[in-house]
Structures are given as C-alpha cells and as structure tokens.
Design a protein around this nucleic acid. Sequence first.
DNA 1: GCTTGACTTCAAGTTGACTTGAAGTGGCAA
DNA 2: TTGCCACTTCAAGTCAACTTGAAGTCAAGC
Lengths: 142, 142
Amino acid sequence: MILDIGEVSKRSGLPASTLRYYEEKGLIQSAGRRGLRRVFEHSVLERLSLIALGRSAGFSLDDIADMFTEGGRPRIDRAQLAAKADELNRVIRRLGAMRDALRHTAACPAPSHMECPTFQRMLRLASATRARKRPSLTTTKA
Amino acid sequence: MILDIGEVSKRSGLPASTLRYYEEKGLIQSAGRRGLRRVFEHSVLERLSLIALGRSAGFSLDDIADMFTEGGRPRIDRAQLAAKADELNRVIRRLGAMRDALRHTAACPAPSHMECPTFQRMLRLASATRARKRPSLTTTKA
DNA sequence: GCTTGACTTCAAGTTGACTTGAAGTGGCAA
DNA sequence: TTGCCACTTCAAGTCAACTTGAAGTCAAGC
C-alpha cells in the first residue's frame, strides 16, 4: 500500500510541510517519487507514531533521529528509556506538588497569598527548580 | 535594603540580561536609578520567585505579567489557579502513563518493541496527544 | 488539449524567551 | 584624578520546530 503526502498527512494528522520537514531531518523516508511527488509506504505511519511518542516523552527531534538511524527499524536503548522514565518521574513529582499548592492557594483564605505559608512553600519550591530551558509544559497559548 | 542588578542576579541566579528583559516586559520594576544604574528593592527577589513559580507551573511570561500588573502586589485569580491546577493534573496523568509505559518498554523482553502490546498502547497514547506546540518538557539539552 | 489543484522547491518568516555584541557611561577604589 | 569595570542601550542573533509564500511542475479529469 502506497500513499502520497496528502494521504499521509490526513492519516497522521500532520501537515504536509511537517512531513517534508521530517524527511529533510532524516526522521522519515519516502519510498521514492512518482514524477516529482513523494510516495510513502504505509509503514511511515507507524514511524510517525513512534516520533509522536518520542516527542511526547520529551525527546527532541534530534534525539529521536538518533534512535533509529541505525539499520532502519527503531533501535531504542533500554537504559535510555529507563533514564527518561526516571526523569519524567521527577518532573511528575514536582508538578504534583505544584498542583497541590495551586489548589491550596486557590482555596486559601489568607487576604494576600504572600501571607499564606503554603504559598510561601510553593515559592521556595519553584525557586529551587531552576535550570530548565523551555517553559516546562502546557504552553497551550489560550 | 537596595540592590544593584549584579546583586539581584547573584541572589536570584538569573543573568542580568534576563532581569533587564523582565523589566522591559513589565514583570519587575526597579526602584529607580543611581546614575544610569538600576536600583532594585529587596522585594524584587520575592517577585522573581513568584515569576519562577509561574514559569514552572507552565505560565508564559505574558500570563504572569497579567497576574500582577493590577495594583502592584500579586493579584492572582483563584478560579484561574484552580483551572491551572486541573490542567496540570491532566498533564500529570498523561505523563504518568507515559512513564509507566517507558518503564515497561525498558524492561520488556519482546525482541522488537513493535511486538510489545504495551509499547503499542503507548504509541496510541502518544498519537492521541496532539495539539501541543512545544516539546512538552524536559528539553534538558543533554 | 487544457485547466485545476495537489504537489514540488527554496528561502524566509514565526514564536517565546532570552543572549550576545558593540559602543558608550559613570561610580568608586587607589 | 584616574582608570577600571560593572553597568547602560539598542539592535541583532539564537534555538527548535515548524509555517508561509512565491514560483514552478505535472497527473488527471473534463
């Protein structure tokens, strides 16, 4: 089964421009061309799922590219996965504390948040969390 | 107690350029100038903690600016906080599932991850998680 | 045979949060 | 008084992951 870029776009939910970009980056390959047009094998969809997975686990496209350039099929280092899981776990804990503090603050009767000890604890927690480059998440851009 | 930008930088851990940038964005104010130089009140450090908190909870700088331009002291909408907490909670659940799946996969004896049902479930989970703009988190830049 | 519109390339633009560089200023220790 | 160097401004650069636009190609349906 072969697909043109429009079909892959439709099935994967990714715009064609993104697919071209991914190809340029070496994340996916087309099976060839029909005229000018790229022709994709059906398996590219599986590959794209894998890429989505990596992205949502917090890997960069470059990280992901490294994961399966070798050979052709995904080669994923189990130790790397475990390390990523641990990292994720730390993030989750921190976010959990943040969520709880947010909830408390939302319900807190102190006239100013500044006088609320939970809020102050949250402040210290946040300040301790330096060294992250990007907004950590949920940049949903309202 | 007043501080020059170098001192604020040292105490907050933020580069001076970032402090100027924050001032330009209206996130912090200097108490005035001594000659050309900005003079900050000690309270700016508290403000910076607050900003760090907001950032780590996933608010953009603009979001944060909105939170305390009114008046001068932080005005944080409790409903907004609660909403953010809920959003955070959804993220946490998703990340938890991802973490578990990563761990499973790291330990999974299937010869190829593709044959592992948990891995496949994770793939579906990841594919369902579209519509996020930025890499969700932990872009630690190895 | 001709139009249509989905495809193509390539360069440039976008976004958010900063950083960097060049060129200038001025407070303060010696 | 002098000189250092932390400060200043302003413009431009960076980064990742794309998106957009202009200009061109071409397979297929009418």
